[in-house]
Amino acid sequence: MDFILPLIFMAIMGLAMLLYVILDGYDLGVGILLHYAPEEHKDMMVASIGPFWDANETWLVLGVGIMLVAFPSAHAVVLSALYLPVAVMLMALIIRGVSFDFRTKAHDKHKAFWNAMFTGGSMVAAMSQGWMLGSYVSGFRDDWWTWAFNAVIALTVPAAYVVLGAGWLIMKAEGDLQARAVEWARKAIVPFLIGISAVSIATPFISETIYNKWFKLPGFFALLPIPLVTAAAFAALWHVTGKKSIIDAGYGWVAFASTVLVLILATLGLAYSIYPYVVIDRLNVWEAASATSSLLILLVGTLITLPAIIGYTIFVYRIFWGKARELTYGA
């Protein structure tokens, strides 16, 4: 138990963070794209994420919550080291979350202002998440190389979210908006690809621990599928967004799915790189874990509620399945 419990919680935490990136990723992406959309499409774009964004964000609360609960000392180290970017992200998330409601309820003449806040908040939140990921991977080092590394990730994450958001819109929108979404996806794929490649190449050099893991021989071959499948997913993404006929034939979802696949693989790669650390080179999962009795009590709750949460989340997605419609509180 003492050995396995911390690992289970590490896995749940990773799962929560991955789900957060995918789910809030698409709605932050739509938020960023809002700026580039003509007036007549804005309401529909917001409508496509309306019923979901709040629950999407809750995965972040769960991820941080598990870190807080299961690895309190890691939580303290990580959040103290990331004090400023965390504050920036939180303020950005506040701004974008409220703009969502204010934009439709405020006076018409203020709508443009709240739209701008929506996009700005989404963008800044995405960038600060990227920056945080960068400093986390580099073990919170403070030098020029690390900052450059963080900056690259800070630009890659918004690109990833835009691809996700565009993929979401391809599924949820029709006609002109859908065509625009394809174009947006197309434009963001290249920066996304460049960013993720640069980060993958740089990561082993930022950390010796990671270098040794990836470039020692048996590991190297065992890991080869990760970059190969990622490349295939990018190829699929490029192919689907390149031909209107494919999307018209109903395969638009492939764009979203392959982006999700890329993110899953990236998470797996990251998990492999970092294991068994929670804070790289400093704290491993067992050192950071809380008391076994506390973990056990939480595990019971998690095993009961998590399937229920996933179940009713799917249920709600099915209610709003298919093309987005204008949202109303009435009928």
């Binding site: 309306g50 019923p51 979901f52 709040d54 629950a55 964000e57 809750t58 609360v61 769960l62 919550g65 598990i66 807080l68 609960v69 299961a70 309190p72 809380s290 506390s294 009590i297 939480l298 709750g301 998690t302 509620t305 998590l306 949460i309 009713y312 989340t313 709600v316 709003f320």
Partner: peptide, 20 residues
């Protein structure tokens, strides 16, 4: 920790999901 964890698992997801 467990008290906060249970809040997320039993309350936040429920309200946030069904709010939509």
């Amino acid at each position: 920790g467990p008290l906060l964890g249970y809040e997320v698992l039993t309350a936040f997801f429920l309200e946030a999901t069904f709010l939509g």
